[in-house]
Design a protein around this nucleic acid. Sequence first.
DNA 1: ATTTAAACCCATTGTTTTAGTCGGTAATTA
DNA 2: TAATTACCGACTAAAACAATGGGTTTAAAT
Lengths: 171, 171
Amino acid sequence: MRLTTKGRYAVTAMLDLAINQHTRPVTLHDIASNQEISLSYLEQLFARLRKSGLVKGTRGPGGGYRLAREPVEISIADIITSVDERIDITRCAGREDCHDGERCLTHELWADLSDKIFQFLDEISLGELIDRERSRVDALTAKADSSNDYDSRAARVVFDSKPPVSRRTGT
Amino acid sequence: MRLTTKGRYAVTAMLDLAINQHTRPVTLHDIASNQEISLSYLEQLFARLRKSGLVKGTRGPGGGYRLAREPVEISIADIITSVDERIDITRCAGREDCHDGERCLTHELWADLSDKIFQFLDEISLGELIDRERSRVDALTAKADSSNDYDSRAARVVFDSKPPVSRRTGT
DNA sequence: ATTTAAACCCATTGTTTTAGTCGGTAATTA
DNA sequence: TAATTACCGACTAAAACAATGGGTTTAAAT
């Protein structure tokens, strides 16, 4: 399973759709200006999402994209596997050129790991992600209202994910 | 957090070291021929792993690499974050150009997700991975010994990870 | 001492993926 | 009919991945 900004673009775009699921179709133009990425690149991503049956597009004025299913029925894994190629040709594709047991061991270990990550991402749906975030933001808003400054919260929200400090090593 | 074959090469190579941790240093030449990847590319990866303090190299004949810490003290996240660039320049790096609440929302959502994945990978150590696999293989071996064919197990071990079927959609 | 096996270093190249650009066509609404 | 949108395909640019090739140290073995 590959995990890059490409899948991230797709997930954030799908969240945009999920939020407006029962109000209006969202145009790629909207998403492009929201996220400041190119319209044509979004089109490429949505071509994949459409082929995977995750979104439906309607043309013409007032048109745009909607989720093909309810947000709860779409997992993050669905989205990410939809947009990346994933042909995954490995050197050790058959038994024949696998000369020692050790190599097979590490292959299998990685396969297990990869499966775990997939399962993790497959157990989170767009719907759950929104609910989770909504309650978190509500809590923060309530806290901010009772105190004085709004900026401390805003600062938290704008910064992007950095790899946190390791639990084991402290580096 | 980026997750590609690059990190995977690093993890499998580190497993090689972990397995031989208390016997002998492992040469990059060994790993290169085991995994069938270029020696020089491995050198590039190990330059990073060394700078991160995960491995120690000793030169000369009989030399090679050892883990700098015990396998239990090295997480998969340590390895992966060590080999990939992770400059992660985002468009919305500061508060100033973040024009609407929605965009910040999705950013934060992704950051949360990214953190979860990191934590997941940070809770698995090389040591645990080996133990887990050892017991799994032992169980399979016992089963194979009591029956007749060896091939069914071998077939499972050589094939690489494919994205499994989605829990939600069946696709 | 000399040879040899290894890490270590760096610059370059090729390949793939990511991201963006351009110029359209088709459908739909106003 | 005009405007707005999805949809399509080919092309380009930039970045990351992966490999190549030329070294130099270091240290053990001969």
